[in-house]
Write a protein that binds this DNA or RNA. Structure first.
Lengths: 250, 250
DNA sequence: AAGTGGTCTAGACCACTCT
DNA sequence: GAGTGGTCTAGACCACTTG
């Protein structure tokens, strides 16, 4: 009756699944990114376009984009646009170690071994492989200042990484993640590093030119792509005395 | 002349120091928190009040509060208010270790030694103490399932922690940070943990009931209060084989 | 019921990047 | 200059907590 009762902000259906509008939009955009609608490195449509497409105000659409940026899915650049984050860059294992020589240097890489094999139970589980499935197994040595410093034991699921089973390892890049993207279409978006202390087996010690049973830091990395699938299990070994890592606590 | 040229959004002076309005307000609020205007645990005025006090829109003031919340200075609770974060809770050192027994258990605490002494050069520098200044030195053993598991070496600057130099250690709490707040008015707001690998000295090994030169994880924690002052240097030793820690990478 | 923070709108203006 | 994201406003409404 009264003209002052005008509804200024039209309410849509409330929260279909307990999600706020911007969280629902973020989830939807995330799914479209994972489905490959916008490939890694490419730009999304502008805020204006996405907002009208979703039928919300620009500010609401922005919250969704900011959420995904905070989660590492997107990258926003002032004046240029919003982009799907490309592969994790180096994710440098050297942040865990401090060797006296060659600080800041890019570690040289040498693949010692490449073979197809059935991975251990635990690795197969992480990779989501059926029992007895085959995978690519790599052994890689990384040197700094001409000295062997890190030994890496890498498992890759095999239908996906077939390209790496065929090309000669001598021509491979020093950084694997960009190579995975380029040669196999696999984009590492997120990873977890689990640190433990151990001792080197005689074989490992020989590669690193350290005495057998020398104490080592063991870092197991699980790498995931945009869909949440684990695409690499990598275990890195290095001299325990060179290990150091600092964590911020708030 | 034309009525349509009305300036809807009055612009204030631009960015006095390259800071956006909300970032400047956040810095100002942070300083007021550090100065003790709102003690840890207490509530700030409401968004409405702060916004009119600062002469900005509520949304702008909100961005400042959200920034400080993300930085761990404030804590926002829907329906209740915005609060200055009290001391870091446990900041549980046990997240670094996995012992077979007593998981989830609260570790028993026993102070082995308390003395006033001149701290080592490095500790004095971290604490910002003048050369030769005295400090409180504690040695503390933490047990799980009746077995000694962690040895802690703690340095506290002395004018500040005088209260702890006088009361009997038997009555101390198992968690130190809340005790610092209660007895000394020191609120730990932030900390850094630096992990390294080492071997136990004979004395350390004896306390932990391990063989001398046993491999250990050494975690050095620097604790800071709201003003950014370092208020505690704590080094924790535990069996290297029980160490584990997982880091998320994005 | 009153007060708090959380979501959302519609729009203006600013700062940056590319061409 | 056109297009992008970044800041800010003024206000309505929603959801949660407490008396």
């Amino acid at each position: 009756m009264t003209s002052s009762s005008k509804l200024l902000v039209p309410r849509l259906e409330p929260h279909e699944a307990g999600l706020s509008r911007y969280a629902a939009i973020a989830a939807s955009l995330r799914a479209r990114v994972a489905a490959g609608e916008w490939p890694p490195g490419s730009a999304l449509p502008s805020e204006q376009v996405l907002a009208s497409e979703q039928g919300v105000a620009v500010a609401t659409l922005r919250r969704a984009l900011e959420l995904l940026a905070a989660q590492g899915v997107l990258e926003r650049v002032h004046g240029r646009g919003t982009f799907v984050r490309a592969s994790l860059g180096g994710a440098p294992m050297l942040r865990f170690f401090r060797f006296g020589d060659g600080n800041g240097e890019i570690p040289a890489s040498r693949v010692l071994q490449r073979r197809e094999a059935t991975p251990p139970e635990e690795v197969a589980r992480e990779l989501g492989l059926p029992h007895g499935a085959r995978a690519l197994h790599l052994l890689r040595l990384r040197c700094l200042g001409g000295r062997p410093r890190l030994l890496e034991d890498i498992w890759l699921p095999l239908p996906l990484f077939q390209a790496l089973a065929e090309t000669p390892t001598a021509g491979w890049d020093a950084l694997f993640y960009p190579m995975y993207a380029q040669r196999c279409g696999v984009h590492v978006q997120r990873a977890t590093d689990s640190i433990a202390f151990d001792t080197l087996t005689p074989a490992q010690a020989a590669h690193l030119q350290l005495p057998a049973r020398h104490p080592c830091a063991r870092v197991q990395r699980l790498a995931f792509d945009l869909t949440g699938r684990c695409v690499e299990v990598r275990t890195t070994y290095g001299d325990a005395h060179a290990f150091h890592y600092t964590i911020q606590i708030t």
